[in-house]
């Protein structure tokens, strides 16, 4: 037992120790990510002001922009100013839009946030019944069909699937808009209608992955002794699956769902471009073409911070469910 025996006597104390360790590593991850992003964006190009203005800028304009962006100090001072600003919600001022990046991000999050949530809900809503069905009918026609369909779902690029959706639902049947976003002030109906096709396009590959993970997790749990016990005590195969196997199989599914968040973010960046949605992804791409490094730097940091935070939360949920994990670093 050793040093952990004391902790084991106080209920919850190992969870607190685990939490403290994870919080430290969370802070370190965020700091390391911010240093990496800052180094790529501000140190590698040499003079960001000259880079943003291009080759034809006069030395005076470059000097003026440098003063405006606060680039006079050394890299360390600038990093501290930027990172400190991010912590207090000051993401800098966009050079092209002339508005605080925080305001831009808040506007765009009103599109990207609901889109990601809708896609996640669709993916889970589709994958759970399909995965259950495949596991319950293992080796039979339904299972083979599900496995074939998910194999194709994994192989389809979501932006191509999005184009096909537009072709069918927006051009041929004309039931949903092909792109653009009316804004939430136009009412929830039109706004949601604009998000449906993008969300479906985003959700399909994720649903295919989730369904496969759930199926193999279920099949694995179905081979466990406690399932045999449940069957022996008179439960049908379906009852054992729903009452016992499903809950245990949810743990790997939750992990995958957390990991998929980062793929969902990346996918959303592309899908927003297919549908001309004014989300974070479009913001980043416009910023790249306009060489607005302030926007690129802060938005990329926010995306990465979101991924790190979700991973952290999934780890915590995992440790709360499975006490064995708390003792690993």
């Amino acid at each position: 037992m050793g040093p952990s025996s004391l902790a084991a006597e106080i209920p919850g104390s190992d969870m607190i120790a685990y939490l403290a360790r994870r919080l430290v590593s969370l802070a370190l991850s965020l700091a390391a990510a911010s240093v990496a992003i800052f180094a790529v964006i501000e140190v590698i190009p040499g003079d960001p002001a000259a880079f943003m203005l291009g080759l034809n800028a006069s030395p005076e304009t470059v000097a003026a922009l440098r003063a405006e962006l606060g680039l006079e100090g050394g890299p360390v001072d600038r990093y501290l100013a930027w990172a400190g600003g991010m912590l207090t919600g000051d993401f800098g001022v966009s050079y092209t839009y002339r508005t605080p990046v925080a305001d831009l991000v808040a506007d765009r999050l009103a599109v990207s946030g609901p889109l990601a949530l809708l896609a996640l809900a669709l993916a889970a809503g589709l994958a759970l019944p399909v995965g259950l069905l495949a596991a319950a009918r293992r080796g039979r026609a339904a299972d083979v069909a599900v496995m074939g369909a998910t194999q194709i779902g994994i192989s389809v690029p979501n932006f191509w699937f999005a184009m096909l959706l537009v072709l069918v639902f927006a051009v041929n049947w004309q039931v949903l808009p092909a792109g653009g976003f009316p804004g939430w002030q136009a009412g929830a109906g039109p706004a949601l209608a604009a998000l449906i096709l993008p969300a479906v396009a985003l959700a399909l590959p994720q649903a295919a992955i989730l369904a496969r993970v759930l199926r193999s997790a279920l099949i694995e749990t179905l081979g466990q002794d406690y399932i045999r016990t449940a069957r022996a005590k008179g439960l049908s195969r379906g009852q054992a699956l729903r009452r016992h196997a499903f809950r245990n199989a949810l743990i790997p599914v939750l992990t995958i769902l957390g990991m998929q968040f980062s793929f969902l973010l990346a996918g959303a960046i592309i899908i927003e471009n297919v549908f001309y949605l004014p989300g974070l992804g479009r913001l980043v791409f416009q910023a790249i073409t306009q060489r607005d490094l302030v926007v690129v730097e802060s938005v990329v940091m926010l995306l990465v911070a979101a991924v790190i935070l979700v991973t952290f939360l999934v780890d915590l949920a995992y440790a709360a469910v499975d006490p064995r994990l708390r003792h690993r670093a």
């Binding site: 991850s29 793929f263 060489r291 991924v307």
Partner: peptide, 16 residues
């Protein structure tokens, strides 16, 4: 590195 989806890495590289 896992915190940076490949598209985000590409965005960083192409921005510069």
């Amino acid at each position: 590195i896992f915190a940076f989806p490949s598209l985000v890495i590409a965005i960083l590289i192409t921005a510069v």
